[in-house]
Simulated assay, not measured.
Amino acid sequence: MSAAARPSTRRSIVVTDDRARLTVYTDGPAHAGVTAILSHGYLMTADAWRFQARELSARGVRVIRYDQRAHGTSEPGHAALTIDRLGADLAQIIDATTPRGPIVLAGHSMGGMAALTLAARHPDLIRRRNPRIALISTACSRAQLAPGHHPLHWVKAAVRASYSYPLCWMPPAADVVRRRLPSRHPWSLLPEAQHRDDVPPPGRQALRRTPTGQIAELWKSLRTYTTADQLHALDALADRVEIITGAVDDWIPLSQTRELARQLPGARVHEPVAGAGHRLPTDRVGHAKVTQVLSAMAEAALRASESTSSTCLRGAPA
């Protein structure tokens, strides 16, 4: 895949079936041979993929990033905020932005859960598009407060519970506090704030327009989510599915990564990235591994597509 000058990021809107307006950012050539569609995690924005978007688009890959509903500049829509809904959003993003051609899907954390839900609820799309899928720091089972059984893990669980439960059960009170926070605080609530640039807002602005009740609704879904024993559509993809995680991830522990690997016995499981935590796409030591894997997957998708096209041409009647 030859390197190409990266066009500027283009911003567009995909309107879902429940009228949510999802903000989409496109990098790279419009008519590239392969498209990478990147789905970010909880309380983040499409900016989480900035390193990968820059590198992949420079290599001639078309890159689609989007703000999940109720994150960044995307609207919450009218449907319940659940992981199932995010999986349906991903299906509609694929159909709206990349109706044909080879694709690489990458999901980080909650974005990976959206990809797994897509496979569980929309197996026809998986069979039709035959994508390559990167599951990054994600799980097929519910989010956990405690990442393990070490005493330090229970301390972390207590700290997480101390703010997650008030958010879930007293969202109006939390909104009052959030409106009084300094505007630069990542939890400040500034629903009138508008992000006017074509590039995604930074992660610290992920929740500026999101009331606490919507954040809590999605967190409750994360706490009950599972796609275990529902991923048969991915069996045929085998090693087209790749699993990547950080060795010191304290949100999705290695036990959950191993369970995901058991659910997908044909998947390629990478060695955990030493010294890397949960936010692998932007992690100081982990982002290069994510970029390397996605670049290799895009190269493989393009080679497979070119090989198929060549075979079809040779078999065509003169």
Rank of each mutant, 00 (worst) to 15 (best):
V104W: 00
V290D: 06
A20D: 04
D47W: 13
V104N: 01
H31R: 12
H287A: 09
W169N: 07
L280A: 06
S141Q: 10
A206W: 02
L135M: 07
L254W: 03
T224C: 13
A53C: 15
A288T: 12
H149P: 00
A238N: 13
A4E: 12
V15S: 14
G203T: 12
T138F: 00
L81K: 04
R223D: 10
G315F: 01
A304P: 05
A114L: 06
W49S: 11
A318D: 09
E306N: 13
D239Y: 09
I244Y: 03
R178K: 13
E192G: 04
A115P: 01
A91K: 10
P265Y: 03
A304G: 14
C140T: 08
T224N: 03
S74T: 01
D175T: 06
T138L: 10
E75V: 02
I64W: 00
S183Q: 11
E55V: 14
L181T: 01
I126A: 09
P253Y: 04
G41Q: 10
A53N: 08
R6E: 13
L260P: 09
E217M: 10
T224L: 13
T212A: 15
M170E: 00
R121Q: 15
I243H: 08
V285I: 11
S141P: 00
A158C: 10
S39R: 01
V241Q: 08
S74V: 04
A316R: 11
A318K: 08
V24W: 03
V285E: 08
S164Q: 13
D89S: 09
V24M: 11
R223S: 14
L152M: 12
Y163P: 14
P191W: 04
T245C: 14
A174W: 05
D250T: 13
R180T: 02
T9L: 12
I13T: 15
A30Y: 00
R303G: 02
Q256W: 00
R258C: 02
T97F: 00
K220F: 07
G72P: 10
R314P: 00
D95R: 14
G203M: 13
R314I: 01
R303Q: 15
L207R: 06
W219D: 14
A276T: 03
P182C: 11
V61L: 07
P172T: 02
A298K: 02
H270Q: 04
L43R: 09
D124W: 00
R6A: 15
A58S: 15
A46H: 06
D249T: 01
P202A: 03
V293A: 08
T226R: 07
L190W: 00
C312T: 10
D89Q: 08
A298C: 15
G315C: 08
R196M: 10
D249S: 06
P151Y: 07
S8R: 13
Y225C: 03
V104A: 00
G33Y: 05
L167N: 10
L254V: 02
W219I: 09
L260T: 05
K220I: 12
G60T: 09
T212I: 06
A88D: 13
L313A: 14
S164T: 13
E242C: 06
V24G: 12
D249P: 02
